[in-house]
């Protein structure tokens, strides 16, 4: 299957790992990601004028017309903004998060296990925008847990999986991010598994020895694409 692809600004920069691993997984399952030409920044959470913010994503949808019907956006902020603009525009596209695609194609079942997660403990952490607001949330709010346990791993952190890491305040009030991130780090155990570039940076910055990994890294490890996690 072919999808339009909206990487967003962080995935072509600091979250390059999320970009490359998303492409790798989709390719591995026979799906093509075609980058929308000349896409514009979605504005993330930086704009106070709602129309201005929505117009950024609407212009991206305009560029995707005739190019694709389904758009995959891995960054939670981009995904939310695109999905809202699409709903506002009458919903002619399907805006998908990779987690929704993984769920839809039940890739957990189709994976040929090369490494299991037996004896390892993980904290799947979703953060905010993947789960809120309701209108733009991903479909399965336990997909990361389902995946980890299916491959023999143990999970922790149910109580904090949807708490805020404060990533949005990282370059404004760093102490606030530190305090909020530590609430998540200190109340959980095992490797922290995330899908948001901002959560990754916040948790990694303030965790001492805890490993912070993208969910994609976990998938690639189980699939045998990497030997180390």
């Amino acid at each position: 299957m072919e999808y339009g692809y909206y990487p967003g600004c962080s995935l072509i920069g600091s979250a390059h790992r999320l970009n490359s691993t998303t492409k790798k997984i989709f390719k591995r399952f026979g799906h093509d990601l075609k980058e929308i030409p000349d896409w514009h920044c979605c504005g993330a959470f930086e704009y106070g004028n709602k129309n201005e913010l929505t117009d950024f994503s609407k212009s991206n949808l305009k560029k995707a017309h005739g190019f694709c019907n389904d758009i995959v956006a891995p960054c939670p902020a981009c995904y939310k903004n695109l999905k809202e603009a699409n709903q506002d525009d009458g919903g002619s596209f399907s805006i998908l998060h990779p987690l929704d695609v993984f769920e839809y194609f039940d890739i957990v079942e189709s994976i040929d296990i090369k490494h299991d997660l037996e004896g390892r403990l993980f904290t799947p952490y979703y953060g905010c925008v993947l789960l809120r607001p309701k209108e733009t949330a991903i479909k399965n709010k336990d997909i990361m847990e389902n995946f980890i346990t299916r491959f023999g791993g143990d999970v922790d952190g149910e109580k904090v999986k949807d708490r805020c890491c404060g990533g949005n305040q990282f370059f404004i009030n760093r102490w606030a991010t530190e305090k909020l991130s530590r609430l998540i780090i200190d109340n959980t155990h095992g490797d922290l598994v995330v899908f948001c570039p901002l959560c990754h940076m916040a948790l990694k910055t303030f965790s001492e020895n805890r490993k912070v990994i993208y969910f994609n890294d976990l998938l690639l490890y189980v699939m045998g694409e990497t030997d180390k996690l």
Binding site: C128, R132, P133, C164, G167, N168, A176, L180
Partner: peptide, 12 residues
């Protein structure tokens, strides 16, 4: 105004 983290817990 100073510390909202855009978490949408209120909206939710």
């Amino acid at each position: 105004v100073l510390f909202c983290t855009n978490c949408y817990r209120c909206t939710h």
